[in-house]
Simulated scan of single mutants.
Amino acid sequence: MGIECRDSVNIAVVDSGVNPYHSHVNGIDGGVALRVNREGWIEYYEDFRDRLGHGTAVVAVFKHLLKEARIFIVKIFDEKLATYPSVLCEALYWCIHEKIDIVNLSLGMEKDDEQVREACRAADEAGVSIIAAYDEKNGLCWPARYETVFGVCAGEASRDEWGFITDKLFYACGYPRELPGELQLHNIYGHSFAAAHFSAFVAQLLMKNPNWNSKDVRLYFQELYQNKNSREE
């Protein structure tokens, strides 16, 4: 009997939106934008166009590596790459409600936040795998440090490789989608794209294991890490 595979996997890119007409994107499957209004309430709106370029570059990684994935946008950044923790929480709860499989957070916070921690826990309970960028140098270590989140930093790895730092902290390629010729020399680099590359690997795992959820993915990496350490002893 062959391995049963999913037809697709749902990935939410929580970021600055997307330019769906970019040649490296060519459309997405849906999304939403969140913002805090003048009264201090979080409101939903339909315009998730990317004014910063960051979200578009992250989505391009998925579009290049995962032809079958369904990509959804949750725009939480607008004029700058900063927002309130409450907006991030709302984004995570939206992902739970929409039955997202993987949430890519190419972002980080300087300190623990109880509400964000609880939202990540709720997502994990719902079977959602959260992958977040880990930037220790700049102190942007949360939510990557939460037990229910996979943290990823940029390291020496090709686009189809990743490696262990701990059983829940990884390194992966820090470059976005490859650019032609000498343009590659000027390409951006960072933990944001490492998170996206690792999220793509998790998506491939879910495609091959249609009954897995976030806890199965975490157990897979824990066992792989333990086996790796046993071989090295």
Rank of each mutant, 00 (worst) to 15 (best):
R51T: 10
C120Y: 01
Y44E: 15
V59T: 14
V128F: 00
D112F: 14
N138C: 12
V14Y: 05
F150T: 07
S230D: 13
P20K: 14
Y21S: 15
W94C: 12
H22E: 05
G181T: 08
C173R: 00
Q222H: 13
G108T: 05
I28N: 07
R231V: 00
L205F: 09
F48A: 06
Y175I: 01
R145H: 10
I130G: 04
N138L: 15
N10V: 09
G108S: 11
T166L: 03
D78W: 06
V74L: 05
H54K: 05
N213W: 07
P176N: 03
C120T: 05
G127I: 12
G2N: 12
D160T: 08
H197N: 09
V152F: 08
V13T: 09
E43A: 04
E43R: 09
A200N: 03
N229R: 14
E233G: 12
E43S: 10
H24W: 05
W162M: 02
C120H: 00
W41N: 15
S230M: 10
K63G: 03
K168D: 08
L179R: 14
N138G: 13
I131K: 05
G174S: 03
E90G: 03
I3Q: 05
N229P: 01
Y225R: 07
K111T: 12
C5Y: 13
G163A: 09
V32P: 02
L140V: 01
R49K: 13
K99F: 09
V14T: 05
S86V: 02
N227S: 14
D78T: 04
M207H: 11
V18H: 05
K67F: 06
L205A: 01
P143C: 02
V202Q: 00
N227T: 09
Q222E: 15
G31N: 02
H24F: 03
R145D: 13
Y171R: 08
I76P: 09
V103D: 04
N10W: 10
S129P: 03
F150V: 08
A200I: 02
Y45P: 06
H97V: 09
S214M: 12
A196G: 03
F198V: 00
L65T: 01
M1V: 14
H54W: 02
V128H: 00
K228F: 14
E46K: 13
K80A: 12
Y44I: 14
N37M: 04
V14K: 07
A203I: 01
P143L: 03
